[in-house]
């Protein structure tokens, strides 16, 4: 079984390597102008250069900060609000229509509003990222809280558990699979919005770096930025699924 798994891993690496080789080939054959399309060799060199003089590291940290703070605010507010709405049937029916109106609203439409309110500031970025990232979490939490096994509430009643104990010992853990998958979706949204905000507001980060590089025709730098953004998305998603595996161990351990 492990053997086939290794084989699949190797195959997936081979695909990635093949794509990079194809990219190099296209660059070498000059099918696209080298001004716009550097080969992976030049992109890699730009990446190394950026890290050795510290600029890229700084930009990466900038983007990670925007993404993380926005995501954190969205998580705390989303889960708290979701718990409140989800744990009461009345609240659910009052609030659900408003949520359904706000949820499909494109976050890009909120950005001008946020700029008008906060100016081109970090606060604006925080607001936009948190606003965009809150939905998957909020809706997942509402759903998770609504789907708690009623029998468990009866167990809680027969034990005379306090309201707070019911939330923390029964509802929250029961909703945790939903909440965690919402948090993972939100993570991706946060990265996208972090980049958008940096581009629009000129905030220090990879988004801004990518924009400036493109404007100055420094295509290797542009690609280095894009590669880093991809890596951030990949690594954060990986970290999240490790956390998920750890927290939801009870779910997979069947026989």
């Amino acid at each position: 079984m492990n053997w086939t798994l290794t084989l699949w891993r190797l195959a997936s690496f081979a695909v990635a390597a093949g794509l990079i080789a194809l990219w190099q080939l296209i660059a070498n054959l000059k099918l696209a102008s080298p001004v716009f399309l550097p080969g992976p060799d030049r992109a890699w060199a730009a990446l190394m250069r950026g890290f050795s003089n510290g600029t890229l590291l700084e930009k990466t940290i900038g983007t990670l900060e925007h993404m993380f703070y926005g995501w954190l605010v969205a998580s705390v507010v989303g889960i708290a609000l979701g718990a409140m709405i989800g744990s009461s049937r009345a609240m659910r029916s009052y609030v659900a229509p408003s949520l359904e109106f706000l949820r499909p609203l494109p976050v890009s439409a909120i950005i001008p509003v946020a700029i008008a309110l906060f100016g081109l500031t970090q606060g604006m970025a925080l607001f936009v990222i948190a606003f965009g990232a809150i939905w998957p979490m909020l809706l997942a939490t509402v759903h998770g809280f609504g789907a708690v096994e009623p029998r468990l509430y009866e167990v809680a009643r027969s034990l005379h558990m306090s309201r707070l104990a019911v939330i923390f010992k029964i509802a929250l853990p029961s909703a945790s699979p939903d909440i965690i998958s919402g948090m993972r979706l939100s993570l991706t949204v946060s990265l996208i919005l972090a980049v958008v905000c940096e581009i629009l507001a000129g905030l220090d980060g990879l988004g801004h770096w990518v924009l400036l590089s493109a404007r100055a025709f420094r295509s290797p730098d542009l690609f280095a930025g894009v590669i880093l953004l991809g890596a951030i998305g990949y690594v954060t998603a990986l970290a999240m699924s490790l956390v998920e595996q750890r927290l939801l161990r009870w779910r997979t351990s069947g026989h």
Binding site: E149, R151, L152, E154, V155, R157, S158, L159, H160, K169, I170, P173, S174, S176, W250, R251
Partner: peptide, 30 residues
């Protein structure tokens, strides 16, 4: 209302236990 000194054993044990707690954890709840 339900009383703490009156315990209920439900038929559907699968639904009445906390799946995210171990056996010890489930007893600990009470």
């Amino acid at each position: 209302a339900p009383r703490r000194d009156v315990a209920i054993v439900f038929q559907d044990y699968g639904k009445a236990l906390l799946p995210w707690r171990t056996a010890a954890g489930n007893v600990a709840l009470a």
